[in-house]
Each structure stands twice: as C-alpha cells, then as structure tokens.
Amino acid sequence: MDKLSGLANKLGGGNKSNDQGSGGSGGQEDYLDKGLDSIESKYGGGKIDPQKMRSTNEKITDSARTRFEGATGHKVPDKISN
C-alpha cells in the first residue's frame, strides 16, 4: 500500500484540491478504475480497500490515461475511460 501511495504522490503531485474533486463523482467509475479495484481486491491480500484508496487510484488511472495519450497520440476510447 505504501508503494501505491508513493507512486500516486509522484504521479499526481499530491494535490489536495484534486482529491476533493474526484470524490464528487462518487459512482462514476470507468472500466480502468474498476480494473484497478479488481486487482487490488484480488492481489492485495485483504489489506487494501479500493474505496478508501479512491483518490490514489484516480491519480494512478489519470496518469495512465495521460501517458497512453502522449505515447500513442490517440485519446483513450470513451468506452474504457471517461
């Protein structure tokens, strides 16, 4: 869990205002967010609660989207990411 938090801080810069903004969209999880939640549940050994890690997960998936778009020059399809 510390590794995920450290990664999110490096990628997201630890911006507190961004954390609050992601909480407003509560049930708006896309496939990328759900996939990360599933990985945490399956391989986290019961120590990671995806709902408590929501802001960290948002930073990770947002960074993944940005890197994908930068590397390919294409936007992530709306079906996968909002």
Results as ranks from 00 to 15, higher is better:
residue 2 D to N: 11
residue 3 K to M: 09
residue 3 K to F: 05
residue 5 S to A: 08
residue 7 L to K: 05
residue 7 L to I: 07
residue 7 L to V: 07
residue 7 L to W: 04
residue 10 K to G: 02
residue 11 L to Y: 02
residue 11 L to R: 03
residue 12 G to K: 01
residue 14 G to I: 01
residue 14 G to T: 00
residue 15 N to C: 11
residue 16 K to Q: 15
residue 16 K to M: 14
residue 18 N to M: 08
residue 19 D to F: 01
residue 20 Q to P: 00
residue 21 G to R: 14
residue 22 S to A: 11
residue 23 G to K: 11
residue 24 G to L: 14
residue 24 G to H: 10
residue 25 S to L: 10
residue 28 Q to T: 05
residue 29 E to F: 09
residue 29 E to V: 01
residue 30 D to M: 01
residue 32 L to K: 02
residue 33 D to Q: 04
residue 34 K to L: 11
residue 36 L to K: 00
residue 36 L to C: 06
residue 37 D to R: 05
residue 37 D to Y: 07
residue 38 S to P: 10
residue 40 E to K: 11
residue 43 Y to I: 02
residue 44 G to A: 08
residue 45 G to S: 09
residue 47 K to C: 08
residue 49 D to C: 08
residue 49 D to T: 01
residue 50 P to M: 03
residue 50 P to K: 01
residue 52 K to A: 15
residue 54 R to A: 15
residue 56 T to M: 04
residue 57 N to H: 12
residue 59 K to L: 05
residue 60 I to A: 07
residue 60 I to M: 11
residue 60 I to N: 04
residue 62 D to P: 02
residue 64 A to N: 05
residue 64 A to S: 10
residue 64 A to W: 02
residue 65 R to K: 15
residue 65 R to E: 15
residue 66 T to E: 15
residue 67 R to K: 13
residue 68 F to E: 06
residue 69 E to Q: 14
residue 70 G to W: 09
residue 70 G to L: 10
residue 71 A to S: 13
residue 72 T to H: 10
residue 72 T to D: 12
residue 73 G to C: 10
residue 73 G to F: 10
residue 73 G to R: 11
residue 73 G to I: 03
residue 74 H to E: 13
residue 74 H to K: 12
residue 75 K to I: 03
residue 76 V to H: 06
residue 77 P to Y: 03
residue 77 P to F: 02
residue 77 P to L: 06
residue 78 D to M: 04
residue 79 K to I: 03
residue 80 I to M: 10
residue 80 I to A: 07
residue 81 S to N: 09
residue 82 N to I: 00
residue 82 N to L: 03
